[in-house]
Amino acid sequence: MAAMKASGACRALIRQFEGCRLTAYRCPAGIPTIGIGHTRGVKMTDRCNVQQADLWLTEDLQDAEAAVSSLVKAPLSQGQFDALVSFVFNLGAGAFKQSTLLKRLNAGLPIAAADEFKRWVNSGGVRLQGLVNRRAAEEAMFRAATRVAA
């Protein structure tokens, strides 16, 4: 079976919440970031153009896709996969690997797994409305795809 890839809906969700900034900035967690949520090797003096931001997004999505594909043992629909890729893109594979969301999903409990999205709304111990909104969108995408998959 071919490895799943993030759909256009996944890319759109990530773009919606990450935005596109062509000069480096510190995200709420204090991590130097540029483009569409790109963090690898970023220095605060960095600049990019839209084409570079799109290229980094594609590369970063491949990392998130690989993490979801390797860590999730349960079958996934496209929408479930997309929601999880957005989640991992934002939080990182390490957080996902340790999450109750993943444990419940791999235990065959997708509805219980969906309940876990809303727990991931803090950065540095502070509840951020942007994360509340993003997790709600990811959860909605996951649940809609879960109903279809059931």
Score class of each variant (00 low, 15 high):
Ala2Glu: 05
Ala2Val: 02
Ala6His: 01
Ala6Met: 06
Cys10Thr: 00
Leu13Trp: 01
Leu13Thr: 05
Ile14Gly: 05
Ile14Gln: 01
Gln16His: 07
Phe17Asp: 02
Gly19Arg: 03
Cys20Pro: 00
Cys20Asn: 02
Cys20Ile: 02
Cys20Thr: 03
Arg21Asn: 09
Arg21Ile: 02
Thr23His: 09
Ala24Asn: 01
Ala24Gln: 00
Tyr25Cys: 06
Arg26Asp: 04
Pro28Tyr: 01
Thr33Val: 08
Gly35Lys: 05
Ile36Met: 08
Gly37Gln: 09
Gly37Ser: 08
Gly37Asn: 06
Thr39Arg: 13
Arg40Ala: 13
Arg40Tyr: 11
Gly41Phe: 10
Val42Gly: 04
Lys43Gln: 12
Thr45Trp: 06
Asp46Ser: 08
Arg47Ser: 08
Arg47Asp: 00
Cys48Met: 15
Asn49Asp: 15
Gln51Ile: 10
Gln51Trp: 08
Gln52Ile: 09
Ala53Lys: 01
Ala53Asp: 00
Ala53His: 04
Leu55Arg: 15
Trp56Ile: 00
Leu57Asn: 02
Asp60Arg: 05
Ala64Met: 03
Glu65Asp: 08
Ala66Lys: 12
Ala66Phe: 05
Ala67Ser: 13
Val68Tyr: 06
Ser69Asp: 09
Ser70Gln: 14
Ser70Met: 10
Lys73Ala: 09
Lys73Ser: 12
Ser77Met: 04
Ser77Phe: 04
Gln78Phe: 02
Gly79Gln: 13
Gln80Cys: 10
Gln80Asp: 09
Asp82Leu: 01
Ala83Glu: 01
Leu84Ile: 07
Val85Ala: 09
Ser86Lys: 02
Phe89Trp: 03
Leu91Gly: 08
Gly92Gln: 05
Ala93Arg: 11
Ala93Tyr: 01
Ala93Pro: 03
Phe96Trp: 00
Lys97Tyr: 06
Gln98Lys: 15
Ser99Tyr: 06
Ser99Cys: 08
Ser99Glu: 03
Leu101Trp: 06
Arg104Tyr: 13
Leu105Val: 01
Asn106Ser: 04
Leu109Pro: 00
Pro110Ser: 06
Pro110Met: 07
Ala112Glu: 15
Ala112Arg: 12
Ala114Val: 03
Asp115Lys: 14
Glu116Pro: 02
Glu116Gln: 15
Lys118Gln: 13
Arg119Tyr: 11
Arg119Leu: 12
Arg119Ala: 10
Trp120Val: 04
Trp120Arg: 08
Trp120Cys: 06
Val121Ala: 03
Val121Pro: 03
Asn122Gln: 15
Ser123Ala: 15
Ser123Met: 08
Gly124His: 07
Gly125Ser: 05
Gly125Tyr: 04
Val126Trp: 03
Val126Tyr: 05
Arg127Pro: 10
Arg127Thr: 15
Arg127Ala: 11
Arg127Gln: 14
Leu128Arg: 10
Gln129Met: 14
Leu131Phe: 06
Asn133Ser: 15
Arg134His: 09
Arg135Leu: 11
Ala136Thr: 13
Ala136Tyr: 08
Ala136Asn: 15
Ala137Val: 10
Ala137Ser: 13
Glu138Asn: 07
Glu138Lys: 07
Ala140Lys: 15
Ala140Ser: 14
Met141Gly: 10
Arg143Gln: 12
Ala145Val: 07
Ala145Asn: 10
Ala145Glu: 09
Arg147Tyr: 08
Arg147Trp: 12
Ala149Asn: 14
Ala150Tyr: 14
Ala150Met: 14
Ala150Lys: 12
